[in-house]
Design a protein around this nucleic acid. Structure first.
Lengths: 268, 268
DNA sequence: GGAGATTCTCAGGAGATTCACAGGAACCGG
DNA sequence: CCGGTTCCTGTGAATCTCCTGAGAATCTCC
Protein backbone atom coordinates (compact mmCIF):
# COMPACT_ATOMS: atom_id res chain seq x y z
CA UNK A 1 0.00 0.00 0.00
CA UNK A 2 1.22 3.43 -0.83
CA UNK A 3 -0.19 6.57 0.58
CA UNK A 4 0.50 10.10 -0.31
CA UNK A 5 -0.50 13.24 1.38
CA UNK A 6 -2.45 15.43 -0.95
CA UNK A 7 -0.25 18.39 -0.36
CA UNK A 8 -1.89 20.12 -3.24
CA UNK A 9 -5.10 20.55 -1.40
CA UNK A 10 -5.64 23.47 0.88
CA UNK A 11 -6.13 21.10 3.74
CA UNK A 12 -7.60 21.95 7.08
CA UNK A 13 -4.14 22.71 8.30
CA UNK A 14 -4.05 26.42 8.89
CA UNK A 15 -0.98 28.38 7.93
CA UNK A 16 1.59 27.95 10.65
CA UNK A 17 2.47 31.55 11.18
CA UNK A 18 -0.75 32.68 9.65
CA UNK A 19 -1.86 36.12 10.49
CA UNK A 20 -5.52 36.70 10.87
CA UNK A 21 -5.70 37.60 7.23
CA UNK A 22 -4.65 34.23 5.95
CA UNK A 23 -8.04 32.70 6.13
CA UNK A 24 -8.05 28.94 6.01
CA UNK A 25 -10.44 27.71 3.42
CA UNK A 26 -13.27 26.05 5.20
CA UNK A 27 -12.16 22.49 5.07
CA UNK A 28 -14.74 20.08 4.02
CA UNK A 29 -13.83 16.81 5.59
CA UNK A 30 -14.89 14.02 3.35
CA UNK A 31 -14.31 15.99 0.24
CA UNK A 32 -10.67 16.39 -0.33
CA UNK A 33 -9.28 13.46 1.56
CA UNK A 34 -5.87 14.25 2.86
CA UNK A 35 -4.74 10.67 2.70
CA UNK A 36 -4.88 9.13 -0.72
CA UNK A 37 -3.61 6.02 -2.37
CA UNK A 38 -0.87 6.32 -4.92
CA UNK A 39 -3.31 6.37 -7.79
CA UNK A 40 -5.30 9.21 -6.25
CA UNK A 41 -8.31 7.11 -5.33
CA UNK A 42 -9.58 7.33 -1.79
CA UNK A 43 -8.25 5.07 0.93
CA UNK A 44 -10.26 1.91 1.43
CA UNK A 45 -11.28 0.89 4.92
CA UNK A 46 -13.08 -2.29 5.82
CA UNK A 47 -15.26 -2.16 8.94
CA UNK A 48 -16.07 -5.46 10.61
CA UNK A 49 -18.58 -5.44 13.44
CA UNK A 50 -21.66 -7.53 14.05
CA UNK A 51 -23.53 -4.75 15.81
CA UNK A 52 -25.01 -3.05 12.81
CA UNK A 53 -25.72 0.23 14.58
CA UNK A 54 -22.08 0.53 15.51
CA UNK A 55 -20.96 -0.45 12.06
CA UNK A 56 -23.26 2.19 10.64
CA UNK A 57 -21.99 4.86 12.98
CA UNK A 58 -18.40 4.04 12.11
CA UNK A 59 -19.07 3.87 8.41
CA UNK A 60 -20.70 7.25 8.60
CA UNK A 61 -17.85 8.89 10.43
CA UNK A 62 -15.11 7.30 8.35
CA UNK A 63 -16.86 8.01 5.10
CA UNK A 64 -16.97 11.62 6.15
CA UNK A 65 -13.18 11.54 6.32
CA UNK A 66 -13.26 10.97 2.61
CA UNK A 67 -12.50 7.30 2.78
CA UNK A 68 -14.12 4.50 0.86
CA UNK A 69 -15.90 2.24 3.36
CA UNK A 70 -17.31 -1.25 3.33
CA UNK A 71 -18.93 -2.94 6.27
CA UNK A 72 -19.15 -6.64 7.08
CA UNK A 73 -20.88 -8.36 9.97
CA UNK A 74 -18.80 -11.49 10.42
CA UNK A 75 -15.37 -13.00 9.89
CA UNK A 76 -16.26 -14.90 6.78
CA UNK A 77 -17.63 -11.83 5.07
CA UNK A 78 -14.63 -9.83 6.17
CA UNK A 79 -12.22 -12.30 4.63
CA UNK A 80 -14.19 -12.47 1.45
CA UNK A 81 -14.23 -8.69 1.18
CA UNK A 82 -10.54 -8.39 2.03
CA UNK A 83 -9.62 -10.86 -0.67
CA UNK A 84 -11.53 -9.17 -3.45
CA UNK A 85 -11.60 -5.53 -2.41
CA UNK A 86 -8.09 -5.19 -0.96
CA UNK A 87 -8.67 -2.54 1.73
CA UNK A 88 -5.87 -0.29 2.96
CA UNK A 89 -6.92 -0.72 6.56
CA UNK A 90 -9.35 -2.79 8.60
CA UNK A 91 -11.39 -1.91 11.67
CA UNK A 92 -12.06 -5.21 13.37
CA UNK A 93 -14.25 -6.09 16.31
CA UNK A 94 -12.46 -8.87 18.18
CA UNK A 95 -15.76 -10.41 19.21
CA UNK A 96 -17.41 -11.79 16.13
CA UNK A 97 -20.19 -14.35 15.93
CA UNK A 98 -18.40 -16.89 13.78
CA UNK A 99 -14.72 -16.73 14.72
CA UNK A 100 -12.52 -15.02 17.26
CA UNK A 101 -10.18 -12.13 16.67
CA UNK A 102 -6.96 -14.10 16.45
CA UNK A 103 -8.35 -16.41 13.80
CA UNK A 104 -9.68 -13.57 11.71
CA UNK A 105 -6.41 -11.71 12.04
CA UNK A 106 -4.42 -14.75 10.96
CA UNK A 107 -6.45 -15.39 7.88
CA UNK A 108 -6.65 -11.71 7.11
CA UNK A 109 -2.88 -11.53 7.09
CA UNK A 110 -2.91 -14.42 4.71
CA UNK A 111 -5.08 -12.48 2.31
CA UNK A 112 -3.58 -9.04 2.68
CA UNK A 113 -0.23 -9.38 4.45
CA UNK A 114 0.56 -5.78 5.31
CA UNK A 115 -2.84 -4.30 6.00
CA UNK A 116 -2.93 -2.42 9.32
CA UNK A 117 -5.72 -3.39 11.67
CA UNK A 118 -7.54 -1.35 14.29
CA UNK A 119 -9.15 -3.61 16.87
CA UNK A 120 -12.32 -2.82 18.69
CA UNK A 121 -12.44 -4.51 22.05
CA UNK A 122 -14.54 -4.47 25.18
CA UNK A 123 -13.08 -2.61 28.10
CA UNK A 124 -12.57 -5.64 30.31
CA UNK A 125 -10.88 -7.76 27.65
CA UNK A 126 -7.72 -9.47 28.83
CA UNK A 127 -4.78 -7.17 28.33
CA UNK A 128 -2.14 -9.61 27.15
CA UNK A 129 -4.49 -10.97 24.56
CA UNK A 130 -4.73 -7.55 23.01
CA UNK A 131 -1.02 -7.14 23.33
CA UNK A 132 -0.62 -10.25 21.20
CA UNK A 133 -3.01 -8.96 18.65
CA UNK A 134 -1.38 -5.62 18.30
CA UNK A 135 2.13 -7.01 18.14
CA UNK A 136 2.57 -5.67 14.63
CA UNK A 137 1.94 -2.12 13.65
CA UNK A 138 -1.65 -2.52 14.65
CA UNK A 139 -3.59 -0.57 17.23
CA UNK A 140 -6.78 -0.91 19.24
CA UNK A 141 -9.48 1.11 20.96
CA UNK A 142 -11.81 -0.04 23.69
CA UNK A 143 -15.57 0.20 23.57
CA UNK A 144 -17.24 2.52 24.10
CA UNK A 145 -15.07 4.78 22.02
CA UNK A 146 -15.40 8.27 20.67
CA UNK A 147 -15.39 8.83 16.94
CA UNK A 148 -12.54 11.28 17.22
CA UNK A 149 -10.46 8.55 18.78
CA UNK A 150 -11.20 5.94 16.14
CA UNK A 151 -10.60 8.36 13.32
CA UNK A 152 -7.36 9.54 14.87
CA UNK A 153 -6.05 6.03 15.43
CA UNK A 154 -6.97 5.01 11.94
CA UNK A 155 -5.30 8.04 10.49
CA UNK A 156 -2.26 7.15 12.50
CA UNK A 157 -2.21 3.60 11.18
CA UNK A 158 -2.63 4.73 7.61
CA UNK A 159 0.00 7.34 8.01
CA UNK A 160 2.52 4.93 9.47
CA UNK A 161 1.72 2.25 6.93
CA UNK A 162 2.04 4.75 4.12
CA UNK A 163 4.98 6.25 2.35
CA UNK A 164 7.78 7.71 4.39
CA UNK A 165 6.96 11.06 2.88
CA UNK A 166 3.79 11.17 4.87
CA UNK A 167 5.74 10.73 8.07
CA UNK A 168 5.88 13.62 10.51
CA UNK A 169 2.52 14.74 9.30
CA UNK A 170 1.11 14.27 12.74
CA UNK A 171 1.23 17.95 13.57
CA UNK A 172 -1.87 20.06 13.70
CA UNK A 173 -1.20 23.77 13.72
CA UNK A 174 -3.43 26.75 14.30
CA UNK A 175 -1.64 30.04 14.78
CA UNK A 176 1.09 29.47 17.33
CA UNK A 177 -0.71 26.49 18.78
CA UNK A 178 0.70 23.10 17.82
CA UNK A 179 -0.68 19.66 18.58
CA UNK A 180 1.14 16.40 17.92
CA UNK A 181 -1.29 13.57 17.30
CA UNK A 182 1.41 10.94 17.77
CA UNK A 183 2.96 12.05 21.01
CA UNK A 184 -0.14 13.78 22.32
CA UNK A 185 1.88 16.85 23.08
CA UNK A 186 0.63 20.39 22.78
CA UNK A 187 2.53 23.64 22.67
CA UNK A 188 1.59 27.24 22.57
CA UNK A 189 4.39 29.64 21.73
CA UNK A 190 6.72 26.70 22.17
CA UNK A 191 5.66 26.22 25.78
CA UNK A 192 4.56 22.74 26.65
CA UNK A 193 0.96 22.37 27.79
CA UNK A 194 -0.30 19.33 29.63
CA UNK A 195 -3.79 18.18 28.70
CA UNK A 196 -5.91 15.33 29.96
CA UNK A 197 -7.21 12.78 27.48
CA UNK A 198 -10.59 14.43 27.05
CA UNK A 199 -9.14 17.90 26.80
CA UNK A 200 -6.76 16.63 24.15
CA UNK A 201 -9.49 15.11 22.04
CA UNK A 202 -11.62 18.21 22.29
CA UNK A 203 -8.73 20.40 21.24
CA UNK A 204 -7.89 18.09 18.38
CA UNK A 205 -11.44 18.25 17.10
CA UNK A 206 -11.44 22.02 17.30
CA UNK A 207 -8.08 22.26 15.58
CA UNK A 208 -9.16 19.96 12.82
CA UNK A 209 -11.93 22.45 12.09
CA UNK A 210 -10.34 25.85 12.57
CA UNK A 211 -12.46 28.97 12.05
CA UNK A 212 -15.54 26.86 11.97
CA UNK A 213 -18.33 27.06 14.53
CA UNK A 214 -18.93 23.67 16.12
CA UNK A 215 -22.12 23.21 18.10
CA UNK A 216 -22.14 21.57 21.47
CA UNK A 217 -24.05 18.65 20.00
CA UNK A 218 -21.52 18.16 17.25
CA UNK A 219 -18.73 18.21 19.78
CA UNK A 220 -20.53 15.80 22.04
CA UNK A 221 -21.20 13.39 19.19
CA UNK A 222 -17.64 13.47 18.10
CA UNK A 223 -15.48 13.76 21.17
CA UNK A 224 -17.48 11.85 23.75
CA UNK A 225 -18.14 8.16 23.42
CA UNK A 226 -21.29 7.11 21.66
CA UNK A 227 -22.95 5.87 24.82
CA UNK A 228 -22.44 9.03 26.83
CA UNK A 229 -25.72 9.88 28.45
CA UNK A 230 -24.81 12.92 30.50
CA UNK A 231 -25.47 16.60 30.39
CA UNK A 232 -24.49 18.58 27.34
CA UNK A 233 -22.78 21.11 29.52
CA UNK A 234 -19.70 18.94 29.96
CA UNK A 235 -18.69 20.59 26.75
CA UNK A 236 -18.88 23.99 28.40
CA UNK A 237 -16.88 22.62 31.28
CA UNK A 238 -14.12 21.26 29.11
CA UNK A 239 -13.99 24.38 27.00
CA UNK A 240 -13.47 26.17 30.27
CA UNK A 241 -10.62 23.81 31.17
CA UNK A 242 -9.03 24.24 27.78
CA UNK A 243 -9.17 27.99 28.01
CA UNK A 244 -7.53 27.93 31.36
CA UNK A 245 -4.63 25.99 29.93
CA UNK A 246 -4.38 27.34 26.42
CA UNK A 247 -5.59 30.89 26.54
CA UNK A 248 -4.41 31.62 30.08
CA UNK A 249 -3.19 35.19 30.08
CA UNK A 250 -2.55 35.12 26.34
CA UNK A 251 -4.77 36.38 23.60
CA UNK A 252 -7.70 33.97 23.34
CA UNK A 253 -7.91 31.46 20.51
CA UNK A 254 -11.04 29.68 21.64
CA UNK A 255 -14.14 31.74 21.02
CA UNK A 256 -17.79 31.37 21.99
CA UNK A 257 -20.49 32.06 19.45
CA UNK A 258 -23.45 32.49 21.71
CA UNK A 259 -26.34 30.32 20.61
CA UNK A 260 -24.21 28.60 17.98
CA UNK A 261 -21.16 26.92 19.46
CA UNK A 262 -17.41 27.32 19.74
CA UNK A 263 -14.55 27.79 17.34
CA UNK A 264 -10.79 28.05 17.41
CA UNK A 265 -8.72 30.41 15.31
CA UNK A 266 -5.31 32.04 15.38
CA UNK A 267 -5.04 34.85 17.88
CA UNK A 268 -5.01 38.39 16.59
CA UNK B 1 -23.07 12.97 -5.62
CA UNK B 2 -21.35 15.74 -7.46
CA UNK B 3 -22.13 19.35 -7.05
CA UNK B 4 -20.74 22.30 -8.84
CA UNK B 5 -21.04 25.95 -8.19
CA UNK B 6 -22.69 27.66 -11.08
CA UNK B 7 -19.92 30.15 -11.42
CA UNK B 8 -21.24 31.14 -14.77
CA UNK B 9 -24.37 32.58 -13.30
CA UNK B 10 -24.40 36.04 -11.85
CA UNK B 11 -25.45 34.61 -8.56
CA UNK B 12 -26.65 36.63 -5.65
CA UNK B 13 -23.10 36.71 -4.44
CA UNK B 14 -21.84 40.17 -5.20
CA UNK B 15 -18.27 40.56 -6.43
CA UNK B 16 -15.90 40.33 -3.51
CA UNK B 17 -14.10 43.60 -3.93
CA UNK B 18 -16.97 44.92 -5.85
CA UNK B 19 -17.49 48.59 -5.98
CA UNK B 20 -21.02 49.77 -5.90
CA UNK B 21 -21.06 49.59 -9.66
CA UNK B 22 -20.86 45.83 -9.82
CA UNK B 23 -24.53 45.36 -9.43
CA UNK B 24 -25.73 41.87 -8.86
CA UNK B 25 -28.42 41.00 -11.29
CA UNK B 26 -31.64 41.01 -9.38
CA UNK B 27 -31.65 37.37 -8.73
CA UNK B 28 -34.83 35.82 -7.61
CA UNK B 29 -33.75 32.86 -5.56
CA UNK B 30 -35.46 29.95 -7.13
CA UNK B 31 -34.52 31.23 -10.51
CA UNK B 32 -30.81 30.78 -10.86
CA UNK B 33 -29.88 28.21 -8.27
CA UNK B 34 -26.32 28.58 -7.14
CA UNK B 35 -25.80 24.97 -6.28
CA UNK B 36 -26.27 22.58 -9.13
CA UNK B 37 -25.53 18.99 -9.79
CA UNK B 38 -22.81 18.12 -12.25
CA UNK B 39 -25.28 17.76 -15.09
CA UNK B 40 -26.77 21.18 -14.47
CA UNK B 41 -30.03 19.91 -13.09
CA UNK B 42 -31.21 21.33 -9.78
CA UNK B 43 -30.22 19.81 -6.47
CA UNK B 44 -32.69 17.28 -5.15
CA UNK B 45 -33.85 17.46 -1.58
CA UNK B 46 -36.11 14.96 0.12
CA UNK B 47 -38.22 16.30 3.00
CA UNK B 48 -39.52 13.76 5.51
CA UNK B 49 -41.99 14.96 8.12
CA UNK B 50 -45.33 13.61 9.18
CA UNK B 51 -46.75 17.03 10.04
CA UNK B 52 -47.98 17.99 6.62
CA UNK B 53 -48.16 21.69 7.42
CA UNK B 54 -44.50 21.72 8.29
CA UNK B 55 -43.58 19.63 5.29
CA UNK B 56 -45.47 22.06 3.09
CA UNK B 57 -43.80 25.07 4.62
CA UNK B 58 -40.39 23.53 4.12
CA UNK B 59 -41.09 22.34 0.62
CA UNK B 60 -42.19 25.78 -0.37
CA UNK B 61 -39.17 27.50 1.09
CA UNK B 62 -36.69 25.03 -0.32
CA UNK B 63 -38.31 25.02 -3.71
CA UNK B 64 -37.87 28.76 -3.67
CA UNK B 65 -34.14 28.18 -3.38
CA UNK B 66 -34.32 26.59 -6.78
CA UNK B 67 -34.11 23.04 -5.53
CA UNK B 68 -36.13 20.08 -6.62
CA UNK B 69 -38.21 18.94 -3.65
CA UNK B 70 -40.12 15.84 -2.72
CA UNK B 71 -41.95 15.31 0.53
CA UNK B 72 -42.73 12.07 2.34
CA UNK B 73 -44.69 11.53 5.52
CA UNK B 74 -43.12 8.40 6.93
CA UNK B 75 -39.96 6.34 6.99
CA UNK B 76 -41.12 3.75 4.52
CA UNK B 77 -42.01 6.36 1.93
CA UNK B 78 -38.75 8.14 2.56
CA UNK B 79 -36.75 5.02 1.89
CA UNK B 80 -38.71 4.23 -1.21
CA UNK B 81 -38.19 7.73 -2.53
CA UNK B 82 -34.50 7.72 -1.65
CA UNK B 83 -33.99 4.48 -3.50
CA UNK B 84 -35.63 5.55 -6.72
CA UNK B 85 -35.16 9.30 -6.77
CA UNK B 86 -31.64 9.55 -5.32
CA UNK B 87 -31.79 12.90 -3.54
CA UNK B 88 -28.67 15.00 -2.89
CA UNK B 89 -29.77 15.81 0.64
CA UNK B 90 -32.47 14.77 3.09
CA UNK B 91 -34.36 16.77 5.71
CA UNK B 92 -35.52 14.24 8.25
CA UNK B 93 -37.80 14.55 11.26
CA UNK B 94 -36.44 12.22 13.92
CA UNK B 95 -39.94 11.54 15.19
CA UNK B 96 -41.77 9.60 12.53
CA UNK B 97 -44.92 7.52 12.93
CA UNK B 98 -43.50 4.25 11.68
CA UNK B 99 -39.84 4.17 12.71
CA UNK B 100 -37.38 6.16 14.77
CA UNK B 101 -34.68 8.44 13.48
CA UNK B 102 -31.72 6.13 13.89
CA UNK B 103 -33.45 3.33 12.05
CA UNK B 104 -34.39 5.54 9.16
CA UNK B 105 -30.89 6.96 9.08
CA UNK B 106 -29.35 3.51 9.00
CA UNK B 107 -31.50 2.28 6.16
CA UNK B 108 -31.14 5.56 4.34
CA UNK B 109 -27.39 5.16 4.41
CA UNK B 110 -27.82 1.77 2.93
CA UNK B 111 -29.70 3.22 0.00
CA UNK B 112 -27.68 6.36 -0.57
CA UNK B 113 -24.45 6.09 1.43
CA UNK B 114 -23.15 9.62 1.11
CA UNK B 115 -26.29 11.69 1.24
CA UNK B 116 -26.07 14.40 3.91
CA UNK B 117 -28.96 14.57 6.35
CA UNK B 118 -30.44 17.52 8.21
CA UNK B 119 -32.39 16.35 11.25
CA UNK B 120 -35.39 18.09 12.69
CA UNK B 121 -35.82 17.49 16.38
CA UNK B 122 -38.03 18.83 19.14
CA UNK B 123 -36.28 21.15 21.52
CA UNK B 124 -37.45 19.53 24.72
CA UNK B 125 -37.11 15.96 23.52
CA UNK B 126 -33.65 15.73 24.98
CA UNK B 127 -34.21 12.05 25.59
CA UNK B 128 -34.53 11.55 21.87
CA UNK B 129 -31.18 9.82 21.60
CA UNK B 130 -29.77 12.47 19.33
CA UNK B 131 -26.37 11.03 20.11
CA UNK B 132 -24.39 10.18 17.04
CA UNK B 133 -26.83 11.77 14.68
CA UNK B 134 -24.44 14.51 13.73
CA UNK B 135 -21.48 12.17 13.74
CA UNK B 136 -20.85 12.33 10.04
CA UNK B 137 -21.20 15.53 8.15
CA UNK B 138 -24.79 15.71 9.19
CA UNK B 139 -26.43 18.53 11.04
CA UNK B 140 -29.64 19.21 12.90
CA UNK B 141 -32.00 22.01 13.84
CA UNK B 142 -34.45 22.06 16.71
CA UNK B 143 -38.12 22.83 16.36
CA UNK B 144 -39.37 25.43 16.17
CA UNK B 145 -36.86 26.59 13.59
CA UNK B 146 -36.64 29.52 11.25
CA UNK B 147 -36.62 28.90 7.53
CA UNK B 148 -33.46 30.91 7.17
CA UNK B 149 -31.77 28.53 9.54
CA UNK B 150 -32.90 25.41 7.73
CA UNK B 151 -31.89 26.78 4.37
CA UNK B 152 -28.53 27.90 5.68
CA UNK B 153 -27.78 24.55 7.26
CA UNK B 154 -28.87 22.72 4.17
CA UNK B 155 -26.71 24.90 1.99
CA UNK B 156 -23.83 24.21 4.33
CA UNK B 157 -24.35 20.47 4.05
CA UNK B 158 -24.58 20.61 0.28
CA UNK B 159 -21.57 22.82 0.07
CA UNK B 160 -19.47 20.54 2.20
CA UNK B 161 -20.70 17.42 0.45
CA UNK B 162 -20.21 18.99 -2.95
CA UNK B 163 -17.31 19.46 -5.27
CA UNK B 164 -14.05 20.90 -4.06
CA UNK B 165 -14.63 23.86 -6.33
CA UNK B 166 -17.37 25.01 -4.03
CA UNK B 167 -14.89 25.20 -1.18
CA UNK B 168 -14.43 28.45 0.71
CA UNK B 169 -17.73 29.58 -0.63
CA UNK B 170 -18.93 30.27 2.86
CA UNK B 171 -18.48 33.99 2.30
CA UNK B 172 -21.33 36.31 1.52
CA UNK B 173 -20.22 39.65 0.20
CA UNK B 174 -22.07 42.88 -0.48
CA UNK B 175 -19.88 45.88 -1.17
CA UNK B 176 -17.27 46.00 1.56
CA UNK B 177 -19.43 43.99 3.91
CA UNK B 178 -18.45 40.35 4.33
CA UNK B 179 -20.22 37.60 6.23
CA UNK B 180 -18.69 34.20 6.90
CA UNK B 181 -21.29 31.50 7.38
CA UNK B 182 -18.78 29.02 8.80
CA UNK B 183 -17.22 31.14 11.48
CA UNK B 184 -20.24 33.40 11.95
CA UNK B 185 -18.02 36.41 11.55
CA UNK B 186 -18.87 39.70 9.90
CA UNK B 187 -16.58 42.45 8.71
CA UNK B 188 -17.09 45.85 7.25
CA UNK B 189 -14.00 47.43 5.73
CA UNK B 190 -12.03 44.66 7.34
CA UNK B 191 -13.20 45.66 10.81
CA UNK B 192 -14.70 42.89 12.82
CA UNK B 193 -18.33 43.34 13.83
CA UNK B 194 -19.95 41.35 16.59
CA UNK B 195 -23.54 40.29 15.97
CA UNK B 196 -25.98 38.33 18.10
CA UNK B 197 -27.56 35.19 16.69
CA UNK B 198 -30.73 36.94 15.53
CA UNK B 199 -28.87 39.89 14.09
CA UNK B 200 -26.65 37.48 12.21
CA UNK B 201 -29.55 35.63 10.65
CA UNK B 202 -31.27 38.83 9.68
CA UNK B 203 -28.14 40.17 8.04
CA UNK B 204 -27.57 36.90 6.25
CA UNK B 205 -31.07 37.02 4.84
CA UNK B 206 -30.59 40.58 3.67
CA UNK B 207 -27.22 39.81 2.14
CA UNK B 208 -28.56 36.80 0.34
CA UNK B 209 -30.99 39.15 -1.36
CA UNK B 210 -29.00 42.30 -2.05
CA UNK B 211 -30.71 45.24 -3.76
CA UNK B 212 -34.01 43.57 -3.19
CA UNK B 213 -36.78 44.95 -1.01
CA UNK B 214 -37.83 42.51 1.66
CA UNK B 215 -41.05 43.22 3.50
CA UNK B 216 -41.29 43.00 7.24
CA UNK B 217 -43.61 40.05 6.85
CA UNK B 218 -41.17 38.25 4.61
CA UNK B 219 -38.40 38.87 7.06
CA UNK B 220 -40.49 37.73 9.97
CA UNK B 221 -41.51 34.55 8.19
CA UNK B 222 -38.00 33.83 7.23
CA UNK B 223 -35.75 34.84 10.08
CA UNK B 224 -37.99 34.21 13.06
CA UNK B 225 -39.17 30.74 13.93
CA UNK B 226 -42.48 29.72 12.50
CA UNK B 227 -44.23 29.80 15.86
CA UNK B 228 -43.17 33.32 16.75
CA UNK B 229 -46.20 35.09 18.17
CA UNK B 230 -44.82 38.53 18.93
CA UNK B 231 -45.16 41.96 17.46
CA UNK B 232 -44.10 42.54 13.90
CA UNK B 233 -42.02 45.49 14.93
CA UNK B 234 -39.21 43.30 16.22
CA UNK B 235 -38.03 43.56 12.66
CA UNK B 236 -37.77 47.33 12.95
CA UNK B 237 -35.96 46.87 16.20
CA UNK B 238 -33.41 44.49 14.78
CA UNK B 239 -32.90 46.59 11.68
CA UNK B 240 -32.13 49.37 14.08
CA UNK B 241 -29.61 47.19 15.91
CA UNK B 242 -27.98 46.18 12.66
CA UNK B 243 -27.67 49.76 11.49
CA UNK B 244 -26.04 50.73 14.71
CA UNK B 245 -23.41 48.07 14.24
CA UNK B 246 -22.98 48.00 10.49
CA UNK B 247 -23.73 51.47 9.26
CA UNK B 248 -22.50 53.30 12.35
CA UNK B 249 -20.84 56.47 11.12
CA UNK B 250 -20.21 54.97 7.69
CA UNK B 251 -22.26 55.39 4.58
CA UNK B 252 -25.46 53.40 5.06
CA UNK B 253 -25.96 50.08 3.34
CA UNK B 254 -29.30 49.22 4.88
CA UNK B 255 -32.13 51.26 3.41
CA UNK B 256 -35.80 51.67 4.24
CA UNK B 257 -38.37 51.63 1.49
CA UNK B 258 -41.29 53.20 3.26
CA UNK B 259 -44.39 51.11 3.04
CA UNK B 260 -42.50 48.30 1.34
CA UNK B 261 -39.66 47.02 3.47
CA UNK B 262 -35.88 47.06 3.71
CA UNK B 263 -32.99 46.30 1.44
CA UNK B 264 -29.24 46.13 1.59
CA UNK B 265 -26.87 47.27 -1.13
CA UNK B 266 -23.27 48.42 -1.48
CA UNK B 267 -22.67 51.90 -0.15
CA UNK B 268 -22.28 54.74 -2.59
C1' DG C 1 -4.62 -0.31 48.86
C1' DG C 2 -4.05 4.47 48.54
C1' DA C 3 -2.82 9.09 46.62
C1' DG C 4 -3.50 11.82 43.02
C1' DA C 5 -5.56 12.69 38.59
C1' DT C 6 -9.58 12.83 35.90
C1' DT C 7 -14.36 12.93 34.68
C1' DC C 8 -18.67 14.66 35.45
C1' DT C 9 -23.00 16.68 38.03
C1' DC C 10 -24.99 20.43 40.09
C1' DA C 11 -26.12 25.01 40.91
C1' DG C 12 -25.32 29.98 41.48
C1' DG C 13 -24.33 34.04 39.21
C1' DA C 14 -22.74 37.22 35.55
C1' DG C 15 -23.87 38.86 31.49
C1' DA C 16 -25.90 38.71 26.95
C1' DT C 17 -30.02 38.57 24.30
C1' DT C 18 -34.66 38.99 23.10
C1' DC C 19 -38.66 41.52 23.09
C1' DA C 20 -42.66 44.75 24.45
C1' DC C 21 -43.83 49.24 24.99
C1' DA C 22 -44.13 53.95 24.06
C1' DG C 23 -42.72 58.55 22.80
C1' DG C 24 -40.87 61.00 19.21
C1' DA C 25 -39.15 61.67 14.35
C1' DA C 26 -39.84 61.35 9.56
C1' DC C 27 -42.78 61.17 5.84
C1' DC C 28 -47.00 61.79 2.97
C1' DG C 29 -51.22 63.52 1.02
C1' DG C 30 -54.11 67.12 1.09
C1' DC D 1 -49.34 73.61 7.67
C1' DC D 2 -52.04 69.53 9.48
C1' DG D 3 -53.41 65.01 10.64
C1' DG D 4 -52.43 60.40 9.93
C1' DT D 5 -49.30 56.83 9.14
C1' DT D 6 -44.99 54.61 9.29
C1' DC D 7 -40.75 54.06 11.16
C1' DC D 8 -36.97 54.71 14.68
C1' DT D 9 -35.06 53.94 19.05
C1' DG D 10 -34.49 54.44 24.40
C1' DT D 11 -35.80 51.99 28.41
C1' DG D 12 -36.36 48.16 31.05
C1' DA D 13 -37.93 43.54 32.24
C1' DA D 14 -37.93 38.63 31.43
C1' DT D 15 -35.37 35.12 29.76
C1' DC D 16 -31.69 32.50 28.16
C1' DT D 17 -26.85 31.13 27.63
C1' DC D 18 -22.69 30.45 29.29
C1' DC D 19 -19.00 30.26 32.87
C1' DT D 20 -17.06 28.32 36.80
C1' DG D 21 -16.45 26.73 41.76
C1' DA D 22 -17.32 22.87 44.71
C1' DG D 23 -17.46 18.34 45.39
C1' DA D 24 -18.70 13.34 44.47
C1' DA D 25 -17.51 9.32 41.85
C1' DT D 26 -14.30 6.91 39.29
C1' DC D 27 -10.00 5.75 37.28
C1' DT D 28 -4.89 5.20 37.14
C1' DC D 29 -0.64 4.21 38.60
C1' DC D 30 2.52 3.00 41.91
Amino acid sequence: MTLTSSTSSASYRAPVSGTSSGRATGKAPGRQPELLRADGSPVRVLVVDDESSLADLLSLALRYEGWDIRAEGDGAGALRCARSWRPDAVVLDVMLPDMDGLTVLGRLRHEVPDVPVLFLTAKDAVEDRIAGLTAGGDDYVTKPFSLEEVVARLRGLLRRAGAAAVRSESLLTVGNLVLDEDSHEVWRDGTDIHLTATEFELLRYLMRNPRRVLSKTQILDRVWSYDFGGQANVVELYISYLRRKIDAGREPMIHTRRGAGYLIKPAG
